[in-house]
């Protein structure tokens, strides 16, 4: 099992994929000028080939993706990335888009769809937003894994008691239904709170319900 520090790459990189070299150069310069790390690819296949499928699911940052390119199209690339569980938000950039294409891309999870020509500031704002979304998603994933880990540390009995506690059952009821003494239920309950690292019932409910 991968631990916290190796689940995602620490540095966020903006990957720009476009068949037009002039666009690649100018966007790369633009991002350099505001201190945003970036990498450029002149077609989608090159990008996909640059990472193993394990690596691709660990990337941090976002993708700026042209739609119409020779070889693999941007939409096709989006599909491949989804299949590879790539966590990077995608910003589509196109000179030839239409409404159905934009709707389709958004339905498949793109975060933005902007038309060329665009003002540089518009793209920069989109990229900032995408990087923020990427960070939040990562935090959510890490948090879910952490909760999962805590749940797994419970014994079967503790797990049973926890779910009854969450369902609002009183210790007395749990004790009689599970054929335990009330004191034993209290001990299980204390262990649950300890292992789940929560101080109140409300915290426990929030943690477990959010996970489910």
């Amino acid at each position: 099992m991968k631990n916290k520090s190796t689940l995602f790459k620490a540095e966020q990189i903006v990957h720009i994929i476009d068949d037009d070299e002039a666009v690649l150069d100018s966007l790369s310069m633009l991002l350099d000028s505001v201190g945003v790390q970036n990498a450029i690819y002149d077609n989608a296949q090159t990008f996909l080939n640059s990472f193993s499928s394990d690596d691709i699911s660990m990337l941090s940052g976002c993708i700026v993706l042209d739609i119409r390119m020779p070889g693999m199209s941007g939409m096709e690339c989006q599909q491949r990335l989804e299949a590879l569980k790539c966590p990077l938000p995608i910003i589509f950039v196109t000179g030839h888009g239409d409404v159905p294409m934009a709707v389709e891309a958004m339905k498949k999870g793109a975060i933005e769809f902007i038309q060329k020509p665009f003002r540089e500031q518009v793209l920069l704002d989109c990229i900032q937003h995408a990087l923020e979304v990427n960070r939040n998603n990562q935090q959510r994933t890490l948090h879910a894994l952490e909760v999962e880990k805590r749940c797994k540390s419970l014994t079967e009995r503790e797990n049973e008691v926890m779910h009854r506690v969450i369902a609002g059952q009183a210790n007395k009821v749990i004790a009689s239904e599970l054929n335990l003494s009330q004191r034993t239920v209290e001990i299980h309950r204390a262990n649950v709170m300890d292992k789940m690292q929560v101080k109140s019932l409300a915290e426990l409910v929030t943690l477990v319900v959010a996970k489910e």
Binding site: V99, M106, K107, F113
Partner: peptide
């Protein structure tokens, strides 16, 4: 449903969590 549409409108609708945008 859009009586007239453009890409920014469609994108805005989808970002607002619309399930579909039909022209």
């Amino acid at each position: 449903l859009a009586s007239s549409s453009d890409i920014p409108t469609a994108v805005r609708a989808m970002r607002a969590n619309a399930t579909d945008f039909i022209e």
